[in-house]
Design a protein around this nucleic acid. Structure first.
Lengths: 334, 334
DNA sequence: CTGAAAGCGCTTACAG
DNA sequence: CTGAAAGCGCTTACAG
């Protein structure tokens, strides 16, 4: 059941069997190849990846780092959808996916050191930890998603968050909304949300409008948090006609909170989401949202990682995908 | 950066360092322990898992097998939610999670052989492949979810599917529905759906009703498939007053299909789902469904696996969790 | 084209 | 309590 067994059955050395297994055909005669392969098939042999990895310093493992995950946290639909797309991509290349949820990205040290991972994918990272992570990773290929780290040369695949925020506001403005609430995670820490926020404000500014401090409702991206905010908005007495949420999950929670407070969406108040998750189409009313192309994002991310692995060379790149408004039923004209 | 380095810095043998790392404290004096640990910390050393695994035949890797996944398929919300719960459980125990999506479960051979995984979790398996899988796995601990394989002694954590189906029908019957459509994957192959189907039929039978062949609509669990079925049901002219879907995702798609065809849920037709995914609460109208406790299911599954690992012994067990009706807004009284 | 041998970084009896 | 040494199952120069 190991190389040695195969080698002796075939009457060759382990080196030769190894060469056959690894496709180094130019080092082996055709008849030896055939004989060895036949025996491997007959014995249903599959090489021990652990030994292989130890000897070759490669592992065929891709580490997937899911950040912002405390001990008792489950993944949100966006994360989970992306995970599933990346798993597919990794599987197609014949690699293994090791998923690691962490609170902060630097907790991956062990994953990388221990398992000789061939590459690491970050579902997102904070700008201020990227430098440390890269130092840690050394020459191990890595690709980040949605990471704004202008000072460190990394491979990043993201979307045009600024424009997403801009379109979100413009969609509401064009439909006559003026009293708008903005709901999302912290707009003050650099990253995805801050960019969306800036775009959002700039669109308002074009119409000589602004976003007051009190019109910004801070919430994590889970739907549960959205419910509370929805209620708060309903009883705020601020006369909002629309709410812009920075994620679809948040938007769904918001809508529920608003409805529980007696407001009808969109008759009384409009809601716009962000991401265009699949479930947006299946709610009633269907959620109007800013669409990003998750499939393409996953595809590009995997593509760059495997290109680095094949080239045996890391490189920096910054691919920014476009976004667009998907109009459904939760934003009405006032 | 390896054991040897640490050993020489500490002036001891690699065996001693190894003992310290592995907590075999009874084999080492306290002062040696302290000295070695200090150096390990100073050098920020973390052992090579690959070498460790090769030497010890353990890996700290848990394989998670996600079945029914073709090459271009993404995971559905149920799968994905469960994955996230299991990842959490595995992480808490200090293990690594290797996710493997497969079409049929037997494709895991490589995973298991190659990586010396310490345990395998199956998100579900077909009864007819369980025996083969178990032969393959040998003494490697394994726990299945939602698997009906009465002839092979395995550890299985499931829910009372029969009762779930029964409750689904009874909920509709009690509210006066008589013309009911049943929507779900194949009821003819043994497993989860067949059990639900049987329970469903038995509840109808109690009222001297039955389910005609033509009232059974077969569909995969994705929402997209549901949309088409919803349309088909709307134009069937069969006068259904209610539809029972065997998954929430299917129910959401169904609702959309019905609405696109001009039927209002629940005014014109009622819908009941199955699973009680989180998103049921956030749709309008909120989905009435059969609830299963995913958290508990994940917890029990992980618990049994790690118990086997610690005991170094596989055992058979069949834990069946209860289900219940969660009434929301999609089923009305007629 | 083929094989003997060293080495990857650990763990684990075993002897002392 | 400690260490020398074999071994886990591969890969990879290197010599022939």
């Amino acid at each position: 059941m190991n190389l040695k067994t195969i080698a002796s059955k075939a009457g060759v050395s382990t080196a030769t069997v190894s060469n056959v297994i690894n496709g180094n055909y130019h080092k082996v005669s055709q008849e030896t190849i055939d004989r060895v392969q036949k025996i491997i098939r007959e014995m249903n042999y599959s090489p021990n990846a652990t030994a292989r990895s130890l000897a070759s310093k490669e592992s065929r493992i891709i580490g997937l780092v899911v950040p912002n995950m405390g001990d008792n946290q489950a993944m949100d639909p966006y994360t989970i959808h992306m995970l599933s797309l990346l798993e597919q991509a990794v599987r197609r290349e014949g690699y293994y996916l090791m998923v690691r949820c962490v609170d902060r990205c630097r907790e991956i040290v062990q994953l990388v050191n221990s398992w000789n991972v061939d590459g690491v994918l970050f579902l997102s990272a904070y700008p201020d930890e990227v430098e440390e992570i890269e130092a840690l990773l050394g020459s191990t290929p890595s690709v980040y998603m949605d990471t704004y780290a202008s000072d460190v040369p990394i491979a990043n695949i993201g979307i045009n968050d600024y424009r997403g925020g801009f379109l979100s506001a413009r969609c509401l403005l064009e439909r006559g909304h003026r009293r708008i609430a903005f709901v999302g995670p912290d707009v003050n820490s650099p990253g995805v949300i801050q960019q969306r926020y800036r775009g959002f404000c700039d669109a308002l500014r074009e119409r000589s409008l602004g976003l007051a401090e009190e019109d910004i409702y801070q919430a994590a991206t889970e739907s549960e948090a959205g419910v509370e905010i929805g209620k708060a908005i309903a009883r705020s007495g601020k006369g909002y006609t629309a709410v812009a949420a920075m994620s679809d999950t948040l938007a769904l929670g918001l809508s529920l909170g608003l409805q529980l407070s007696g407001l009808n969406v969109p008759a009384d108040i409009s809601v716009i989401g962000f991401d265009n998750l699949r479930l947006c189409r299946f709610t009633t009313p269907a959620l109007t949202t800013i669409s990003q192309d998750l499939e393409e994002k996953a595809r590009l991310t995997a593509m760059h990682l495997f290109r680095m692995i094949r080239k045996k060379e890391k490189y920096a790149v910054n691919e920014i995908l476009d976004v667009s408004v998907v109009e459904r039923q939760t934003v009405r004209r006032v």
